[in-house]
Design a protein around this nucleic acid. Structure first.
Lengths: 217, 217
DNA sequence: GTATCTAGATAGTGCTACTATCTGTTGACG
DNA sequence: CGTCAACAGATAGTAGCACTATCTAGATAC
């Protein structure tokens, strides 16, 4: 397969494919001459993965590269490869967080311990959750970590399914790829469902109040 | 309050405050002289809102402006103001989506109808959900919209709580602001919880398989 | 046999979110 | 009263990101 065909099949422009090759996101094709190389279905699939991480997961190029490096490195365990993606999704926290975030962070850590969720010490997610909680409190939301227990239990169930599904795959590469896509794309899908629910509920209540109680807000 | 004090209280640099003033995200202070203006707690709060939308919601400046304009316009209903934020969260879909996305989109629309979720026709969320579904299928996930029924029911319950909470507020401005923050920040918090669940479950299973079955993956 | 395509290298673009500098006041302090 | 940092407002500049365009020299397709 020539680069023009790869471009056509993947929907990614030739210029961008070259860019990804340079950036080390896409491995080179099989070189057949000084200026000829042959690409295959693996390249198409890899390009789809890259585009999904960028478009859906909104990962920066550097994070995509880190994730794909972990995918390709056979010596990286499935869990560690997966961790590499997670780290790319969130931004790393500063060394000196604001006091209200630090307080929320301690609550988050205690909550994680209660749930028996073992999280890598330098994972960005606990900090991100603490930030969210701190901001909610700044805006007078009376929020406690316990409010998230139900969501956490539900997330745990679906995580068990997802991880089990990926682990059941034939080879490691497929398993890691599945974890990546699942993590990023399901997250997006669930977020969209939440947005849809909010819009639907908001519209319904607006209608009810608009007709019934004639209250303009 | 002078601009330096506003900067200190909000954690936003003076240069950035000026930038937000120029961009119309922050209303000017009360002018007391040709080069003096007085800012108050409302400015601090607004700056916090802006930073939350940018940092947590990752909205672009233009979307923040659109959202805040809707917040400030008393003639915009709470639901419409809220819709303005939602539109800023997702990117607008192209006119001619790929065929697999178009197919998924039809399923999404049917699903929404089954749920009796009334969604604005040009809302970006259904398209985003359809894209996610299409990508999952490209990677051989056997995904049907029905799989999201449980998540949707749960999202609907929490949306009812959120919208009710916001609607119960004293004045319209506070209600809209609460909707904004709630939408954006809770979404982030839930996403982080999902990531934490995935990491915890992945670590647990890795440990189990590592010791018990001696299977390196 | 010539028009098109190719790999690889280098340089440039468009966008976003700030950031820096300048100008002409103005208030605060000693 | 002087002076000096801080101020508002305007203009210009910057850094980072994700491409995109151009060029060269060689290969291919008809």
């Amino acid at each position: 397969m020539k680069v023009s065909e790869l471009s056509a099949q993947s929907g990614v422009s030739v210029a961008t494919i070259k860019f990804y090759l340079r950036e080390g996101l896409l491995h080179a094709g099989l070189q057949t001459a000084a200026n000829q190389a042959d690409y295959d279905g693996g390249h198409v699939r890899r390009l789809r993965l890259i585009r999904a991480l960028i478009d859906i997961g909104e990962l920066p190029i550097a994070a995509v590269r880190a994730a794909l490096t972990a995918v390709d490195d056979e010596s990286t365990s499935l869990h560690d490869a997966f961790g590499a993606v997670m780290h790319g999704l969130d931004t790393v926290p500063p060394d000196d967080p604001a006091p209200d975030i630090a307080a929320a962070r301690r609550e988050v850590d205690a909550w994680l311990q209660r749930r028996r969720w073992k999280i890598e010490p330098d994972a960005p997610a606990p900090h991100a959750l603490a930030s969210a909680v701190a901001i909610l409190r700044q805006f007078d939301f009376p929020v406690a970590l316990a409010h998230f227990d139900e969501a956490a239990a539900s997330a745990e169930r679906s995580a068990e399914f997802e991880v089990g599904y990926a682990r059941g795959m034939a080879d490691r590469a497929a398993a890691v790829e599945t974890m990546l896509i699942g993590t990023v794309v399901f997250e997006r899908a669930l977020a969209e469902i939440r947005r849809l629910a909010l819009e639907a509920v908001s519209a319904r209540i607006e209608r009810q109040q608009g007709s019934g109680r004639r209250r303009r807000v």
